[in-house]
Write a protein that binds this DNA or RNA. Structure first.
Lengths: 245, 245
DNA sequence: CGCGAGCTTGATGCCGATCAATGCATGTGG
DNA sequence: CCACATGCATTGATCGGCATCAAGCTCGCG
């Protein structure tokens, strides 16, 4: 149902949080062993999502949260008039579905930008007043708080930065998050199209393209299609802070 | 009766949530009597904040959440380079400090736009695994989820709307929230300056002013200084959806 | 090989930023 | 009570960044 390979089971075997490579970056961050065990009991098995597939869509009934285990997602909000906007990009360790807790229905579409696997956290886990639920709730509160802070950063970016600053800030943030996952902080592959970047940053794909070219001509980075190499982090940071135009 | 008077006490007497006018709109929303009692035990007394004063500042240690009881607030995020941006306006029933849960330090400044009173919810309440904490956490998760959804709306607005649409959408939202509080949905007083509106909407105060004038000339509203009257809700809605330029 | 999705580059025009001046309301001190 | 200062709001003139429209270009894939 979820993948293009007909033989793929809807759920794969479970890897416990306690043994997960992402343990320090995901929900289990900073938990004691006992707390970790409580959490482990609430997280269901993994589920694959093929590139281009939706994990959920806006309006879907909310019955579980998801943590990205492998792969890359985008979330899209849709206005009543049909305008769409990318509201975030999620990589391993990030949570999906947090905006749905209030209304009981998902508020955005979550689409895999490459073949991915997510961990499933049933909504029921949150309801019962078990010790595990308490741990989970506390971690979720932190995760949501973090998301709010990040969104405020995006609002700042959208409200008061020029195209060059926006793209520079975006790339720095992306590189930093990838580095936290153990990847190189300077050489990376863009999982999303120019249009998706533009949607996230409030600019048109043509402008994204031109801005890439501009940053490249200034020697700050090297970009060829989806492959990106950051040559001058400090320069990019200055650029993001509005140094130049 | 606000902090500018030297004799004002730092805390006033407590009004229990169960007897609060805002009960249905604030943290106690949709709670059973038993749950309400649990919550009541966690909320401290009220605290006054005078117009222009900060309830907290970015970087302050986070030791309690606040619920607006009376008055009007704005929250401001500050970038490293000093740029400031209003990230939200809070009215009675809204919570303040949600962005601080993750880092343990406040991420924004919260400033009273008029003399105000807030209810204090000590952070400790969240930590202990008491039944009250469980109730509080569940309500907080919902409130944060709601904030995330609202922020996504603002991102959409900032990323893909023209000045006229932004202002129209903002005013409709403001009027709707005020109406939910029992005020008129069509006649209202703007608690914030043009500059603050502009900061929130990603435009300059001159543009806000011109846009007000434009909407007025189209007969959609009437504005004189801070006093605003919405004359044509449907027209404003069309305007917000990008009907006109 | 040829198609199509995605990316780049160019030409033009418009929206909103910017600079600058005036108007209006409130408050303060003489 | 008036004169003046101050903060906020409006209006005008000009300019620049980005959207828009319109071709080409690149690359992966059937």
């Amino acid at each position: 149902m979820s993948t293009q390979h007909p033989f793929a089971a809807p759920e794969l075997g479970k890897v416990p949080c306690s043994g997960c490579r992402l343990r320090a970056l995901c929900l289990p961050a900073n938990l004691s062993n006992w707390e970790l065990a409580q959490l482990d009991a609430l997280v269901n098995a993994q589920r694959p999502v093929a590139r281009g597939q939706s994990l959920f869509r806006a309006g879907d009934r909310f019955d579980s949260l998801y943590a990205v285990r492998t792969g890359f997602f985008k979330t899209c909000a849709t206005a009543e008039d049909g305008r769409e906007q990318v509201t975030g990009f999620q990589m391993p360790g990030d949570l999906l579905g947090l905006a749905a807790l209030d209304a009981g229905r998902h508020a955005v579409d979550a689409v895999a930008l490459e073949d991915a696997q997510v961990c499933v956290i049933p909504f029921d886990s949150l309801e019962a007043p078990s010790p595990g639920a308490h741990v989970l709730q506390r971690q979720l509160l932190k995760a949501m708080s973090r998301l709010i802070v990040r969104d405020h950063g995006v609002m700042l970016l959208l409200g008061s930065m020029r195209a060059g600053q926006r793209l520079a800030a975006f790339l720095l943030n992306l590189a930093q998050r990838l580095q936290a996952l153990g990847y190189s902080g300077s050489a990376l592959v863009l999982r999303m199209t120019r249009e998706e970047i533009g949607s996230y940053l409030g600019m048109k794909e043509e402008t994204v393209s031109r801005t890439f070219t501009g940053l490249q001509e200034q020697g700050l980075l090297e970009v060829r299609q989806r492959e990106l190499r950051i040559l001058d982090v400090a320069g990019l940071q200055r650029r993001a802070s509005g140094d130049v135009g």
